[in-house]
Amino acid sequence: MIQAKNLWKKFGRFDALRGLRFTVPKGSAYALIGANGAGKTTTIKLLMNIFEPTQGSVDILGVDSRRISPRELSRIGYVSENQNMPEKLTVAEYLDYLRPFYGTWDRSLEATILRQLRLPPERRIGQLSHGMRMKMALACALPFRPELLILDEPFSGLDPLVRDEFMEQLLHQAGEMTVLISSHELGEIDGVATHVAFLDEGKLLFEESMIDLTSRFREVHITTAREARSPDRIPPHWKDVKTNGNVLSFVDTQFSGEYPDERFGSLVGDVRRIDAQPMALRSIFTTLARAARDGGNA
């Protein structure tokens, strides 16, 4: 659906994106995570041909983003926290305006979405609150049943209630749709994303499917007979190795089922007990981000 190939974007001397490579599979809910200024919005604007890449390219719906045409745009829904819609038009007037541009616009779906999002049709867009505007943007992005829905920080500044309404509507309409969602808040994409990528200072630190990610990470505590010590040669997939008394703790980034005692014996000595716990998404990210920043692989 989307494939970025060595994507670079410079603003003057500042490298906003540095050689991004990622693939958004069809039907996935792909989360682009990163702190503010990491390059998420720049990436999305490159996808939409609002910016042009300095180097590299990105294909979207099989077309180079620089050649994206109304044909592709009619298959893409876009919601952004900074979307400037005509403030003097009412909600209904703007939907009337947009409708003819999309051959697949479903009026009954539009009515359903408006009703469920509780958007007042007669209200001017300029008079809508931030949350209502985000809902409005979503209401403009869904009725034509886009193949690809791009959400740029959709939850930014939304109160929890509006966010839940937004998410509910989104999940309700998602169906076969591919969703690319950018966020700086992990909690927002937990339970939604099928794939996740982490962006930091314009570089993609990793991308992976959520299932793989959660299944291969374990927080491991090994209790030994004597005082625990770090192995002389720490396996590269062990992260955050720490000792406390006779307990050795680390994050295993390549968990593949069970831990036979003999596997650790040669490394840490007499193993009494192995405790491997699945990790919360936030902890996985913290580990990965730290590892990536330290120059290692996860």
């Binding site: 604007k45 939409m48 609002i50 910016f51 109304p70 044909r71 745009l73 009619s74 893409i76 876009y78 952004s80 900074n82 979307q83 400037n84 819609m85 005509p86 947009l98 541009f101 999309y102 403009c140």
Partner: peptide, 16 residues
């Protein structure tokens, strides 16, 4: 109404 400069205009992401 559909300004060309800028990166946030709604028309940029519409099939226009």
């Amino acid at each position: 109404q559909d300004a060309i400069p800028g990166v946030s205009q709604d028309w940029l992401v519409r099939p226009i």
